[in-house]
Structures are given as C-alpha cells and as structure tokens.
C-alpha cells in the first residue's frame, strides 16, 4: 500500500454515520461487480441502478460524517483510505455476490430492513439525517420490491433455481441478526432522538421476509447463532478483497483525479 490510512475520531455520531454509509457503499460496490456480467441486459441495468442508489446514500452520509468530524476527511478519504478493520458495515453487505439468486437474497434481506429503517428515520430530530432518510426510503422501497419479485420467481421457478435460492437463504441467514443491533454508542443517539433503535423493526422484517419466502415456496431457516462484528470492524475475509479492488487506484496513485 502506497498510502497511509486515515485515522477517524469516532464520536457516536461519526461512528453511526460511517456504519450506515459503509453498509450502502459496500453493498453498492458489490452490485457494481455485476456490470458486464448481468444475466440479461435489463437486469444488469437494474443492478447498476440499485448500486448507484446505494452509493449515492453513502455519499450523503460520508459528507455529513466529514462535517461532524471536522478533521479534514471527506467522502473520498473515508471510502478509499480506511482499511478493513476501520470499516463499520454489516457483514451481510460484504458477502460475495454468488449467483444471481444469492445477490437477490442478500438484497432482499438488506432492503427489507432498510425500507422500514429509513422510513422511521424520516422522523429523526437531526434535519440532515431526516433528509437523507426521506431520499433513501423511496429508493429502498423499490429495492425491496425488485428483490422480492425475483426471489419469489426464483424460489417458485425451476427445481434448480429453487435449490440455489434456498441455499442462498440458508447461507446468508446468520448475517441477518446484526442489522437489529444497537450498541451503547448508538443508544446515546437513539435516546436523543437523533436515530432510531433498529431492534423493534425485527417484527416488520420477519413479516416481510416470511411473506416473500412463503410465496417463493422457500423454507424459513431457524433463528440460530447469528454472526456479528462488522459494526466494530471484525469482518469476514471477503471485505479485504473487495477493498483491494475498490481502493486500488487511490492506493496506487494517491490523489489521482480525472
């Protein structure tokens, strides 16, 4: 690595913003990996659009984090000059694309959370966060609809598509618990009505996922042990590989612009 990673002063607000921004950036980057590989042209555009929505959400949140931290960092340094242990995203977001079914299941799991989350966040006492939430809510609602329709068709499709998408549901299930965590740092913000506690969204998420999987003739996994750690920088091995691709240009040619 030719560049030094930045250090971030993670006040509760900055940490919160990086967590949500990192979710959006990492999942958006994963979707961008489909460009040129989409199963059909129409779907390639859909994946690109969803990815761009998410990267747009990340930009707004990073910009606010930069303002809140006021230490000279900006969107680009947050994205390009932090190593994997400094990333605060959900483990779900960094999981590999797998096949198209796995990408859609990952999107469904995340969007079924993001949709009610951002809707609830429109009531945030923080005007900037409320504005980001208002934009993200509409985008997430569409992501949820799109991924739901695909999971239903793949699950209730051929024997092979059913088996593949059931496998994706089972593989990704242990990464879904992390979305509803609220640690002490986030609790202080929730107490001040800056953010909402995500835990109560669990029922809505269970309802959405249950209904989609049922229509898809898929089996809902048992809630067993859940993976955790992304929020504090303990990531799966996949994130480092993703970052080495995403950060390659800035790490190799610091400050490169075009």
């Amino acid at each position: 690595m030719a560049t030094t990673s930045i250090q971030v002063n993670e006040t509760p607000l900055v940490l919160y913003l990086l967590r949500r921004a990192d979710d959006a950036l990492i999942l958006g980057h994963r979707l961008s990996e489909w460009i040129g590989l989409g199963p059909i042209l129409e779907e390639e555009m859909a994946l690109g659009n969803i990815g761009l929505d998410l990267i747009g959400q990340a930009r707004s949140l990073y910009a606010y984090a930069a303002e809140a931290e006021a230490a000279g960092n900006d969107e680009d340094t947050f994205a390009y000059l932090r190593d994997a242990p400094q990333y605060r995203n959900l483990l779900l977001a960094e999981q590999p694309n797998g096949d198209f079914g796995q990408t859609m299941v990952r999107q469904l799991f995340y969007s079924a959370f993001a949709d009610p989350y951002w809707r609830a966040m429109t009531a945030s006492g923080d005007a900037t966060l409320a504005a980001v939430a208002a934009k993200s809510e509409k985008e997430s609602a569409y992501h949820l609809r799109h991924s739901s329709e695909w999971v239903i068709r793949l699950g209730d499709g051929t024997q092979e598509s059913h088996a593949r998408v059931q496998e994706a549901v089972d593989v990704l299930w242990p990464y879904t618990g992390e979305m509803f965590e609220c640690d002490a740092a986030e609790r202080t913000l929730a107490d001040g009505r800056t953010v909402i506690d995500p835990a109560p969204l669990r029922d809505a998420w269970d309802g959405t996922i249950g209904a989609v999987l049922s229509r898809a003739t898929l089996t809902l996994p048992q809630n067993g042990w859940m993976q955790s750690g992304g929020r504090t920088g303990r990531h799966s091995e996949h994130l480092g590989h993703l970052l080495s691709t995403m950060q390659h240009v800035q790490r190799t040619y610091p400050g490169a612009a075009w």
Binding site: E42, E43, N49
Partner: peptide, 11 residues
Amino acid sequence: STLALQAARDL
C-alpha cells in the same frame, strides 16, 4: 408484466 414494468422503470 410485473418484471417488465420494473425493467421499464430501470431502463
């Protein structure tokens, strides 16, 4: 038609 409508929106 459902997926067609979504693809039309995206394209």
